Computed example of a mutant assay.
Amino acid sequence: MSRVFQLIPANPPLEESIPGRCRTCAVVGNSRNLLKSKYGPLIDFQDYVIRINMGHSKGFEADVGNRTTHQVMYPESSSQLDNTTRPVLFTFKMRDIQWIIKNISTQPSRKKPLFNKDLVMVVNPAFMRNIHHVWLQRKDYYPSTGFMSLVLALHICEEVHVFGFGADSDGNWSHYWANEPKNEVKTGGHPGNVEFEMIMALTKHKVIEFYNGR
């Protein structure tokens, strides 16, 4: 970790809040319930648009928008970003840290970089531990990238709008870009149902605005 923080700033800059105006975030999940939602303009209207793992907008702009300010991802779910999108990297195993060092090292490489290394944000692993132990009461093995992105948004924005979370109308957890959604897709090692219940509780108490989609 010390090597990582030698390569990137300890406190990445955020835009200053404007007095009398809330900083707003759109956290865009990857659920198929976004399809035909027409949420695109509302998502793009927010100050920050946070996408998750391989979430992208090309071909789905009407439903998911076309702006991305932050892309949250792991090495296993990384994708090519443009030069203005800020990569937000979660870490919880040694391989993650090694991958980050490799990709933000100043050493020349023949490969095109995945992202602008000057915009990288690395979230302390203690943040993930806190979400798993405190927010989710240690349910299953680890929190999802999407739920951690939502909690991160609560730390950086006064107003948080959440899209594309939860199972689709058939009870599956397929992604909106999947050409042939698989039946009975589950949530892996993270507690999808528990996370969704927490999202509903945050919505009920008006901590976030949740948009269910179809």
Score class of each variant (00 low, 15 high):
V64W: 01
G65S: 05
N66E: 10
N66T: 14
R67F: 01
T68D: 09
H70I: 09
Q71E: 13
Q71P: 04
Q71I: 07
V72P: 01
Y74K: 02
Y74D: 04
Y74E: 01
Y74C: 03
P75Q: 15
P75D: 15
P75L: 06
E76F: 04
E76W: 03
E76Q: 10
S77M: 01
S77P: 01
S77Q: 06
S78E: 15
S79F: 10
Q80K: 13
Q80E: 12
D82Y: 05
D82A: 06
D82C: 10
N83E: 09
N83C: 04
N83Y: 12
T84C: 02
T84G: 00
T85F: 07
R86K: 12
R86L: 02
R86H: 04
P87K: 09
P87T: 05
V88C: 04
V88Y: 10
V88G: 00
L89D: 04
L89G: 03
F90A: 05
F90Y: 11
F90W: 11
F90K: 07
T91V: 08
F92G: 08
K93Y: 07
M94Y: 05
M94P: 01
M94F: 04
D96E: 11
Q98V: 09
Q98G: 06
Q98R: 15
Q98T: 13
W99K: 00
W99C: 00
W99P: 02
I100M: 03
I100A: 01
I101V: 12
I101S: 02
I101P: 06
K102F: 02
N103A: 14
N103Y: 13
N103W: 06
I104S: 15
T106S: 14
T106D: 14
Q107R: 02
Q107F: 00
Q107E: 08
P108V: 10
P108C: 10
P108H: 10
P108D: 11
P108Q: 11
P108I: 03
S109T: 14
R110S: 14
K111E: 13
K111F: 12
K111S: 14
K112H: 07
K112F: 04
K112Y: 01
P113H: 13
P113M: 11
F115V: 12
F115T: 13
K117F: 06
K117D: 07
K117T: 14
D118E: 12
L119K: 15
L119I: 11
L119E: 08
M121I: 15
N124H: 15
N124Q: 12
N124Y: 09
P125Y: 12
P125R: 05
P125K: 11
A126Q: 08
A126R: 04
A126M: 10
A126H: 03
F127P: 01
F127D: 00
M128I: 11
M128F: 09
M128P: 01
R129C: 02
R129F: 06
N130W: 13
N130A: 12
I131T: 13
H132E: 08
H132V: 08
H132Q: 05
H133Q: 15
H133Y: 08
H133T: 12
V134I: 14
W135H: 05
W135S: 10
L136W: 13
L136Y: 05
Q137P: 00
Q137L: 08
K139T: 12
K139L: 14
K139P: 05
Y141L: 12
